[in-house]
Each structure stands twice: as C-alpha cells, then as structure tokens.
Design a protein around this nucleic acid. Structure first.
Lengths: 113, 113
DNA sequence: TGAGCTATCTTGCATTACAATATACTCAGC
DNA sequence: GCTGAGTATATTGTAATGCAAGATAGCTCA
C-alpha cells in the first residue's frame, strides 16, 4: 500500500493526467486511480483536489445528466492545466532520477568512496 | 525544481537510504541530497526528520567530536530502520509503477478507444 | 418503503517540508 | 582578545494536502 504522505503532490498531477486522456468526473477518477494501482483514493481526497484545480484555472467543469444516478460534473483540462501537467511530469522525472540514483548506490557497490 | 509537496514521504526513505550506505550526520546528509539532485533540503527539514526517525526507533545516534566545528551527531540504522527502508522501497516502486502506467497511457495509445 | 449503488460536497485532523531563528564550536585575520 | 565565516544542531510556527467521517441527493429494484 502506498502511504498517504507519498501521494502528496503526485496525486494532483496524476488526476490531471487522467483528465487529459478524456473528460471525466470525480467518481470515475477515483476508480481509475485504483485501477492504475494507487490504492483506494477516497472522495474526501478527490473532490477537494478537483475543486482546487478548478479554482486555480487548471480545470473547467460542466454538469451532465447520467442515466444511472445523479448528475455528473465532468472536468476538462484548460491550457493552464496542460501546462501544469507538463510541469508535473518534469518534476516527477527529476525526483524519480534522484531516487533511482540513490537506490543504485546502496544496492550495488558504493560508487564514490 | 522538485516541489516540496512531492518530497513528502519520499524524503524520509531517502534519508534512511543515505544512512544505510554509511553512518553520517545531518549536515552531510543535506549536502548529499543536493548532490543526488533533490535540490536544497534545509536544516528545518532535515533535523526534525532525523529526530523523528530516532524517536520511533529507526535510527541510533552517537555524538562524535569534529576537528573543524561543533560535535557531530552520527546516525546509524537500527533493524527497525532497515525494515522501514525496505518498506519505503517497496512502496516507492508501487507508486512509480502506477505513475508510469498512467503516463504511458496518455502518451501513446488511448485506452478509451 | 427501503436497501444499495451512484455521485458530490464539507469539516476537521494528522503529517510533514520549510522559513526563521537561536545556539555553539573552530579557525583566520586583525 | 575580538570578529566574522564556516560548520553543526535544534526549535517554533506555518502552509499544503490526503483522508476519515458524515451530509445530501438521485436512480433502480424488490
């Protein structure tokens, strides 16, 4: 299981990524995150996050009726959101490289001693 | 630059990893993190983190004199700390795989056909 | 009527990176 | 001796964010 602290900062970018694939809504996003292996991301996490992203201009929302339940709030990326996704991916790679370098050093031989 | 929120949870495991390579102290750890590409991790981050890890039994500390400044507090991993490092690595891989899977999907093929 | 699934939102809490600040030791230059 | 720079540790308070818990509401089916 992924500890909640480790999701901080990463989750936001991943939600942007999911929306960039296709317009979608909170409930489905939480199910997709689970399918990708992030574990159960609860509503108390997902909805505040979406509202935050809408408020700062990364997302644009439209309500649409559903045949199987209450109205859904569909989100789409704005240009700001696309830029944020790009930034996220860049930062994530930076972190990933740093961690990877460190883990290589403790596994194999020590490289610089 | 890696945003601070994205470091949460990850930094702790990385500090354990650095100490597992060799007993070391706070000031040097912050320099090593910088060398690995994590950016500047300030004292206000590193010392509380080390005290937390010492308090919950992951680290054991011993003071040693230095020839060039005040006493250094050297940290070493306890068995608990080694287990925590293993856990961290496992969780990190889980997150990494999830993010990677997602990023592949938005780049190449669409999954919604 | 009520159970169960779908769907959104809010409140309050815990964790943690970080800025700012305080303390203290060693050494070089004056 | 005094002062400032570099080394080294610690504390306080703040901001960000994942999440539990709970409220609200609509749909379907028995």
């Amino acid at each position: 299981m992924i500890p909640s602290q480790m999701l901080k900062g990463t989750l936001e970018g991943c939600v942007l990524a999911i929306i960039s694939k296709q317009e979608t809504y909170g409930y489905e996003i939480s199910q997709q995150l689970m399918a990708y292996g992030f574990g159960k991301i609860t509503e108390g996490t997902i909805y505040p996050l979406l509202l935050r992203l809408e408020k700062n201009g990364c997302l644009r929302a439209t309500y649409k009726a559903s045949e199987v339940g209450p109205k859904r709030k569909y989100y789409a990326l704005t240009p700001t959101g696309q830029a944020a996704l790009k930034d996220f991916y860049h930062s994530y790679c930076e972190l990933s490289n740093a961690v990877h370098g460190l883990m290589q050093d403790i596994k194999g031989g020590t490289s610089h001693e």
